Simulated assay, not measured.
Amino acid sequence: MKPGKPTIVVDADACPVKAEIARTGKQFGVPVLMVSSYDHLLVPEEGVDIVQVDRHSQAVDLYIVSRVVRGDIVVTQDFGLAAIVLAKGAVALSNQGQIYDDRTIGYLLDRRHEQAKRRRSGGRTKGPRAMTEEDRRHFQQKLTKVLLERQENSEP
Rank of each mutant, 00 (worst) to 15 (best):
Y63K: 14
S36M: 01
E20Y: 00
T24R: 06
A22G: 15
G80D: 06
D39I: 04
F28K: 10
V48G: 00
V10F: 04
Y38L: 12
L81V: 07
L42G: 14
V53M: 04
P31W: 04
R55E: 08
Q27Y: 12
Q58D: 15
V43S: 10
L41T: 08
V43K: 07
Y63R: 09
H56P: 03
V69C: 12
S66D: 15
I73W: 05
S37E: 09
S37N: 15
L42T: 13
D49C: 10
V74L: 14
A14V: 13
E46R: 10
V53Y: 03
C15T: 03
R23N: 03
Q27R: 12
L81M: 13
D61Y: 01
V35H: 05
S66C: 00
V69A: 14
L33H: 06
E46N: 10
A22I: 06
V75T: 00
F79K: 10
D13A: 09
T76N: 06
V17S: 11
K18Y: 07
F28V: 09
K26E: 13
I73E: 06
I73P: 09
G25A: 11
D49H: 12
A19E: 14
G25P: 09
F28T: 11
D72L: 08
V69P: 01
V68W: 03
K18C: 05
V30L: 09
V32S: 10
E20P: 03
V43G: 00
S57I: 13
P31V: 07
D13G: 11
E45T: 14
V10Q: 05
A12H: 09
T24F: 01
V75D: 02
Q27V: 09
R23A: 15
L41A: 13
L33E: 03
D61C: 01
D39G: 15
H40W: 08
Q27A: 15
D49G: 13
F28D: 13
I73M: 05
D72A: 14
V51F: 04
V69I: 12
D78M: 02
V60K: 00
V35M: 06
D11A: 09
Q52G: 08
E45K: 10
T7N: 07
P44M: 07
Q52P: 09
Q27L: 15
V17H: 05
G80K: 05
S37Y: 04
D49S: 15
V60T: 12
